[in-house]
Design a protein around this nucleic acid. Structure first.
Length: 484
RNA sequence: CGCGGGGUAGAGCAGUUGGCAGCUCGCCAGGCCCAUAACCUGGAGGUCGUCGGUUCGAGUCCGACCCCCGCAACCA
């Protein structure tokens, strides 16, 4: 294809005050499916992720560990790197908000907002919970304490900070949502953000007093202040493309912006409202779309960093493999709703669909081909009538990012194949031609399905494609060993 | 009157414009014996949160209420 389309997708950047957890794994896996799907369709894809490294919590944590803060950042940022191989991710950029290029970009972004008249200084006095890294209004407090961190004293912050004129952008944001009814997915989240914006916006603080908290991007033209972590962090979505100077001479900002941004539902406001207002202020185009995913619970309980009931995605991969984890998170959990993780359900789903479903069918067909010495030499053909319906269905589902339903379409087809195989029972036949007439279309379907499966389960898809495109298909190894 | 999402078979979920309650897992009984004790067929199991209303007819529309769960300016 000569008319190559550019497509940019980015995850949120996880904050490095803890290890990677399953919620982020779910987010980045979904982003990876979208990225791989676009790559498969011939788009040129820029897929960004990275780490968010500024702010008070990190400053304090480094101090706790008696570590220079940059050393802490290097150490913790590096904990996110293994996700790429372990989860089999296709991202091609990993940005850190402590990267010099990013910091320069954040400063330039600040200057543009300032030039637009959207940054001003204001005396500021507020109760602040360090645990939440958040200001607290009185209505949010219980007995004068943060309900989430009742063991910590609230800090009273009293200083002059810079503020961003968020309130100025109310109408423009509402106009943006009107113009692009798909700007935020799903609809319920769009409705939520519309209501929020329509109810009125308050300017928010975007800097901190350097003497108290030096770990941030310096505010241009004011030695005494650093940027509040969120202001600089959001800029990563464009600094990663080389904005503003195109310092890597890639032309990536021109080619790829605006982004499809994915995030968890807690990030709706920063992504869909604050960041969009910031872009407007800096005179840049709005994001392409914001996908807001649900949250995971673990065994029905809320996962929280403080409660320590997190699930280590890397341990799961070591135990079951990347495809197994990807499959569970994509097939079992509806993409935009909350879902639950439990090892029992994980194992159940693995056995039912991967071992007994895909794996067993591939074993049945490949074994019969090998035993009967039937040569096939098949090639992927998505126009094949046997697969067309499924291919179209996946296209429809993927247009709405309904990964679970797309996978369901593939598994419906696998089930059909199992049924055909049982009904025709080629193992009872003696005529080789007759046997081949039954097996060949089934093998072709499996090969085609493996191609369609590539964005979801890249490793298994590659294995099955290699197996079923051989001249003489052999049974080979068990694809997904049954768990006992 | 802060905002939002839910309550449908033992579990997890679908149910489009109101028209005989479905799917997956699990369970039971058959079949098959190529396959990873897998696969195929059939079956049991639900007064669709409660009360009231509209209607020939309500899981679906309207009203009130009960119960869960998130969010509430930044934990994905």
């Amino acid at each position: 294809m000569s008319s190559e389309k550019h497509f940019y997708i980015t995850t949120t950047l996880p904050y490095i005050n803890s290890e990677p957890h399953i919620g982020f794994a779910a987010e980045i896996i979904k982003a990876d499916v979208i990225a791989r799907y676009r790559i498969q369709r011939g788009d040129s894809v820029f897929f960004n992720t990275g780490t968010d490294e500024h702010g008070l919590k990190i400053y304090q944590k480094a101090a706790e560990l008696k570590m220079p803060v940059q050393e802490y950042c290097d150490l913790y940022s590096a904990k996110f790197l293994p996700l790429k191989d372990k989860l089999n991710l296709s991202y091609n950029k990993f940005i850190r908000t402590t990267d010099p290029g990013h910091q320069k970009a954040a400063q330039e972004f600040w200057r543009r907002c300032e030039a637009a008249g959207d940054i001003y200084k204001k005396a500021y006095k507020v109760k602040y919970c360090v645990g939440c890294e958040m200001e607290k209004t009185d209505s949010e407090l219980e007995n004068g304490r943060c309900p989430l961190h009742p063991d910590r004293d609230l800090e009273i912050i009293e200083e002059e900070n810079y503020f961003f004129r968020f309130s100025k952008y109310q109408d423009k944001l509402l106009a943006l949502y009107e113009r692009h009814p798909n700007f935020v997915r799903p609809d319920s989240r769009l409705k939520e953000i519309k209501t929020f914006v329509a109810n009125g916006l308050q300017d928010f603080s975007i800097s901190r007093f350097k003497e108290k908290m030096p770990h941030g991007v310096p505010v241009p033209g004011d030695e005494s202040q650093v940027m509040y972590v969120w202001f600089d962090a959001l800029v990563n979505y464009i600094s990663t493309l080389g904005w503003p100077e195109d310092y890597d001479r890639s032309g990536n900002f021109e080619k790829y912006w605006p982004a499809l941004q994915v995030c968890g539902k807690d990030n709706l406001r920063p992504q869909a409202a604050m960041w969009q207002a910031m872009l407007m202020s800096a005179g840049l185009p709005a994001s392409r779309q914001v996908l807001v995913f649900g949250f995971l619970t673990a065994n029905g309980q809320k996962i929280s960093k403080s409660a320590g009931n997190g699930i280590d995605p890397l341990a799961l991969v070591d135990k079951y493999g990347a495809d197994a984890l990807r499959y569970y998170l994509l097939a079992e959990i509806p993409p935009f709703a909350d879902g639950d993780y439990s090892e029992e359900k994980f194992r159940e789903r693995y056995n039912a669909d991967l071992a007994n479903g895909l794996g067993n069918l591939a074993a049945r067909v490949s074994n019969l081909l090998e035993k009967n010495k039937i040569e096939t030499a098949l090639k992927v053909d998505l126009k094949d009538p046997g697969i067309k319906v499924t291919a179209v269905e996946i296209e429809e589902k993927m247009a709405d990012y309904r990964f679970n339903e797309a996978l369901q379409a593939i598994w419906d087809k696998l089930r059909d194949s199992d049924e055909i195989l049982s009904r025709t029972a080629p193992w009872k036949m003696s005529d080789q031609k007759e046997i081949a007439a039954v097996l060949k279309p089934l093998a072709q379907d499996i090969l085609n399905l493996a191609c369609l499966l590539e964005p979801f389960l890249p490793a298994a898809a590659a294995k099955v494609q290699a197996q079923f495109s051989a001249t003489q298909v052999n049974k080979g190894d068990v694809l997904f060993p049954r768990l006992t």
